[in-house]
Simulated assay, not measured.
Amino acid sequence: MSISGLNELSQGLDEGLRFSSLNEALKTISNSAVSDSGECSSRDLHGGCINRALILSHSSLPPLVYKYQSRAEPSLFRSEALGLLALKAAAREAGCSSLRIPEVYGVMDTGILIAYIEPGRPSPEQTLEFGAELATLHSLDLYSLFSGSHSQEGGYGFFRDNYIGLSPQSNGAEADWVDFFRTRRLGSQLELAGRAGYADAALEKRMKQLMNRLGDFLPRRPKASMLHGDLWSGNYLFSSRGEGVLIDPAVYAGHNEADLAMTELFGGFPSSFYRGYREVLPVDREYHTRRDLYNLYHMLNHLNLFGGGYRSSVLGILSSLGF
C-alpha cells in the first residue's frame, strides 16, 4: 500500500461510497429494495460520547450501524471511513487473521454506514490473541508500506489530516518522530487549548519546556507503525466469534508505543491483552515514561473537547515528567 494505494482508497471512497443522504445510500446498498430509512427497523446503539448511532435492520440489507451528527464537519466521517479502509488494508498486509475492521458501506457529510458486528464476551485466550494481533499490525513497517513520495517527505503522519474525537488532527509528514510529536501532536493541542482559554501562561510555559526537551524522552526514528490513534477501551470490542474489532480510528503512522500507551488510559485493557502484545513486540523499561508523555496528547485533547476538568490530569503528567 503505497501513497498511490492510499490515494486509490480515497478515490474509491469518493466514487463508490459517497452519498448525499442516508436514503440514497440505503437504496444503493439494497439495489433499490429500500428507498427510505423509515422502512428499516432501528434501535439505539449506546456507548459513544460524541456521536449518536443506530442499528438498522431490513431483510434486503446487511446489519448496519449508522453513526451520525447533524453538525459534523463535512470531512469528519470521510476521515473515519478512510481510517477504517487504511486499517483494513494494513491488517491484511500484516497477515492479521483474527483482527477485524468493520466494512464501510457509505459516507455522508453528516454520517457513516458501517457493518454491525454482533458483540460477544471474549475468553482470556481471545484477549491474548487480540493483543498479539495488534502487535502484528504494529510490526508492519510503514517506511516500506508507504513507499515513494511519503518516504521522501517523512515516515510519520498520514496522507490526510483527520480527527481525534471532534478535534482536528494534523498529520503532515515528518522524517523525525520527535519533531512530529512536538509539532503535530503536543503543539497543535496546546494551540487549541490557548484559543479556548484552557492554557494560561503558566501551563504554556511548562508545556514549551517539555516540548523543547522531547528528544530526551522519545526516539527520533522508531519504526513507523500503522496506529489506530485513539485506542481506548471504548474503541474496540469483541465479536460473537471472539475476534478483536477496532472502531472509531484516528489513524497515522507513528511509534507503536503511542497506541499501547492509550490502551492504559480510562481503565485499561485486560491483562491477557498485554501479555499477548508483549509476546510479539516486547517493550523496554523506558516505556512507562514514554507512556505518560504519549498520553499527555490525549489528556490535552480531552481538555479541549470536554473542558477544564482535565486540566489537573495535564498538570499531573507534566509534574511526573519533571516540568
Rank of each mutant, 00 (worst) to 15 (best):
M1K: 10
I3H: 15
N7V: 11
E8I: 11
Q11Y: 08
E15V: 07
G16F: 12
R18P: 01
S20R: 15
S21H: 06
N23P: 01
E24Q: 10
E24W: 01
A25E: 01
L26S: 07
K27D: 13
T28Q: 14
N31L: 13
N31A: 15
A33F: 12
A33N: 14
V34P: 10
V34G: 02
D36V: 09
C40I: 02
G48F: 11
G48S: 14
C49I: 14
I50P: 02
N51R: 04
N51K: 05
S57C: 10
H58W: 03
S59H: 14
S59E: 15
S59C: 12
V65N: 05
V65R: 04
Y66W: 14
Q69T: 11
S70Q: 11
A72W: 00
R78L: 08
S79T: 03
E80Q: 08
A81V: 02
L82K: 01
L84F: 03
L85K: 06
L99C: 10
L99Y: 13
R100F: 09
R100Y: 10
P102I: 07
V107D: 00
V107R: 00
A115C: 12
E118C: 12
P119N: 07
G120A: 10
P122T: 03
P124D: 09
E125D: 12
Q126S: 08
T127R: 00
A132G: 10
L140M: 09
D141Y: 07
D141P: 02
L145D: 13
F146E: 09
S151G: 12
F158G: 08
D161N: 13
Y163N: 02
S167Q: 08
S167P: 01
N171C: 05
N171P: 03
R182S: 06
R185Q: 04
R185M: 04
L186R: 00
S188Y: 05
L190Q: 00
E191G: 11
L192H: 05
Y198D: 06
Y198V: 05
K208Q: 13
M211G: 00
D216E: 14
F217Q: 02
F217M: 04
L218Y: 03
P219E: 12
P219V: 11
K223A: 05
K223G: 03
S225H: 07
S225F: 08
G242A: 05
E243T: 05
G244V: 05
V245Y: 01
D248K: 06
N256Q: 12
A258I: 11
A261V: 01
T263P: 04
L265I: 01
L265E: 00
L265R: 02
G267E: 05
P270D: 13
S272T: 13
G276K: 04
Y277M: 09
R278V: 02
V280G: 10
R285G: 14
E286P: 09
E286Y: 15
R291M: 06
D292E: 14
L293T: 03
N295E: 02
L296I: 02
M299V: 08
L303P: 03
G309E: 07
S312W: 12
S319I: 10
G322H: 05
F323M: 15
F323S: 14
